[in-house]
Every structure is written in structure tokens, then in C-alpha cells.
């Protein structure tokens, strides 16, 4: 509360500071799943988080609403919503008022993330009745309006149908309708298009853009697909092994990647120009929790790694225009040279 008065006017919508996520029941300090992650989301902004599977993107998104799996806990750091709501210290009971109302989530697989035993209508009206106190009738009317808003045909009859009667794209539209039902300030989308066909992917991204423009909703978009991120976001954070390794505007990152990992990710995007050459991929895999050494976590896969990289951990350093990277090579060049692969 002490901070509330001071920064209420210019507070970010979401402010994550130095977040640590640890595994429970580990001896000593415990293994960190996320290490010192900081990020802010301003009103109306779309932030992308990109990285390979297992880098901690989903854990980050779940931690915001206190939905971490029971094996994990917040080991340090802060999560502030609108500068005055400390989500990281809230009890389950208090944070429930934010879930689905202020911050809503959509998930990767619309096949499994809807309840196959309940009607679409029930699953949409549930949040409206819970958070906005709508009557059955009001909720139903609003649900019809929402289904129409997300571009679904014949909304009235759809309310009585079950998820398995819809295609994957339609289901994801239903998920989005549920997510935006209470006009949340922030929409967290965890790989929202990964399970969908390419044409449907584009439609869902269009729909999210439309929501952003109509409602001014901020979006935290998580994806392993740089193309999707570039298409949608203002700023991007690149995550690797539980840390942010690079952050900046989409343009900066695409044109001047500072971290070799970012450069590697960009190079592995297939383009027509690379048609006849074999597809590039970064050798090796994201180190597991117990494999993380003392040095840079990417060192084992980095072609430019020096002795220092293997023994010392680089800090996330900001350069021009807020473009930041966690790399000794970038530090040595003062952020002037682009990372090569």
C-alpha cells in the first residue's frame, strides 16, 4: 500500500519484479525454475515471451494468477497488478477475484482446456454470474453477444452445444469469449495458436488484435513461434532456462539480436530464401534444472562461449532504447555488435 499513493498514476498494469519460482521439497535453497524474471506490461500493450519448450514461459504465466503446480512456489520477487495489488502475497481467496475478471487466460489446446461435460453456455455464463453478479438471463444475453463478438455463427444454439461438437478454431474462439467476458485488463495467452491449423492461427491472431483494439486489453502473448510474436507484439522477452536473456522492441530484436540464443532462434525460422538449404537448428537442448552450471546457461550450446561464459553468470544489461541482453559478448561490444550464430 505504501507504494500505491506514489505510483498510482503512472503504475504499469502488470509489474513483475525479480520473480523467483522454486521447486518445493528440495534441500537447501531449492532448485529455481525461474530466476530473477522482471517484466512490465503497460495498458494496451502487447508483450511477447518467446523461447523453447521448457524455458519457463508457461510457469511464468501461471505464477501471475497463483496457478502454479503444487510442486512449485514463489521463492522471491513481486507481482503487482495496477501498482497496488500484490498478487504474489495474496491468499487463494483474494486472488480469485482477479482470476477471470481482471486477468484472464487462454491456453494452448482448446480441445482439452474446455470441460467436455458442460455446455458452452454454462462455461461462458459461469464467469459472468460469478464476477459480475449477472442473473441467468442477463448472463445468457451477454454470452450470445460475446459469441457473436468472437465471430461464432448461430450463438443461440451454440450455447446448448458441447465443446466436442465444435472445431478446434471454434473452441479457441469460445475460450477467447470466456476470457474476455468480464472485460479483463490483461489477457494472458499461452501458445494460443500452437494447436491450430495455419489458416485458423491467422484468424485467431486477428481476433486477438480486434479484442485489443475494441477493448484496450493488454496482452501477454507466450509463444515458441517468433513469427506469431513479431506479428502481434510491441516488445519481446526472450527466455532461456528460466531467465530472460534478451528483451527489446520487436524491430530491435529482429534486426539487431544481441544474444546468440535470439540469433539462433531467428535463424531457425524457415523462409523461402533458405528453401534448398537444410533447416538450421540450435544444437543440444535446454539444460534441465540440475544441469545448470555456474556460468551462462546458454554456454553449452553457444559457438562463441569463452572460459568466462562457463564460469561466470552474465547480468541482463540494458543498452540503447531499452534493448537488453544477458551476454558477455554483447557487454564487450557495448551492445553495438549484433550477435552471430
Amino acid at each position: 500500500m505504501r507504494e500505491a499513493a506514489a505510483i498510482a498514476t503512472e503504475a504499469s498494469l502488470l509489474d513483475i519484479r525479480n520473480l523467483q519460482i522454486r521447486l518445493r521439497r528440495t534441500r537447501g535453497a531449492g532448485l529455481s525454475v525461474l530466476d530473477g524474471v522482471s517484466l512490465t506490461v503497460e495498458r494496451g500493450e502487447t508483450i511477447g515471451i518467446v523461447g523453447e519448450s521448457g524455458c519457463g514461459k508457461s510457469v511464468l504465466s501461471l505464477s501471475i494468477l497463483g496457478l502454479l503446480p503444487s510442486a512449485m512456489r514463489i521463492g522471491g520477487g513481486e507481482i503487482w497488478y495496477e501498482g497496488r495489488h500484490p498478487l504474489h502475497t495474496m491468499t487463494d481467496r483474494d486472488i480469485r477475484a482477479f482470476r477471470g475478471k481482471e486477468i484472464a487466460m487462454i491456453f494452448q489446446d482448446p480441445m482439452s482446456s474446455l470441460n467436455h461435460g458442460l455446455t458452452i453456455g454454462y462455461q461462458i455464463t459461469e464467469t459472468l454470474r460469478l464476477h459480475l453478479g449477472y442473473s441467468r438471463k442477463e448472463a445468457r444475453e451477454r454470452a450470445v453477444w460475446l459469441l457473436r463478438k468472437v465471430g461464432l455463427p448461430r450463438p443461440e444454439s451454440l450455447l446448448r452445444e458441447y465443446p466436442h461438437q465444435l472445431s478446434g478454431g471454434m473452441r479457441q474462439r469460445v475460450m477467447i469469449a470466456i476470457a474476455v467476458s468480464c472485460n479483463p485488463g490483461l489477457l494472458i495467452a499461452d501458445e494460443p495458436t500452437t494447436a491450430l491449423d495455419v489458416t485458423i492461427q491467422a484468424q485467431i491472431l486477428d481476433l486477438m488484435r480486434q479484442i485489443r483494439e475494441e477493448d484496450g486489453t493488454s496482452i501477454l502473448l507466450i509463444s515458441h513461434d517468433f513469427g506469431v510474436i513479431a506479428d502481434m507484439c510491441d516488445r519481446v522477452l526472450v527466455m532461456y532456462a528460466g531467465q530472460i536473456v534478451e528483451s527489446g522492441t520487436v524491430d530491435d530484436l529482429f534486426e539487431r539480436p544481441l544474444h546468440p540464443y535470439t540469433a539462433g532462434l531467428l535463424r531457425s525460422i524457415p523462409t523461402p530464401a533458405k528453401k534448398n538449404s537444410p533447416l538450421y537448428s540450435i544444437e543440444g537442448h535446454v539444460p534441465a534444472l540440475h544441469e545448470r552450471g555456474a556460468g551462462c546457461r546458454f554456454a553449452s550450446r553457444c559457438a562463441h562461449a569463452t572460459e568466462r561464459c562457463r564460469t561466470e553468470q552474465p547480468e541482463l544489461v540494458a543498452y540503447r532504447g531499452g534493448h537488453a541482453a544477458r551476454c558477455f559478448l554483447a557487454e564487450a561490444e557495448g551492445g553495438n555488435r549484433h550477435a552471430a550464430v
Binding site: 501461471l62 477475484a97 477471470g100 482439452s112 482446456s113 474446455l114 459461469e126 464467469t127
Partner: peptide, 13 residues
């Protein structure tokens, strides 16, 4: 299953 996570993310008790 995933739908349980969805249900929790909606703020349900």
C-alpha cells in the same frame, strides 16, 4: 486435466 486449470483461471472456488 487442462480444463481444471481453465476452471481455476476463471476464479472459481
Amino acid at each position: 486435466l487442462d480444463y481444471v486449470r481453465t476452471a481455476r483461471s476463471k476464479g472459481l472456488r
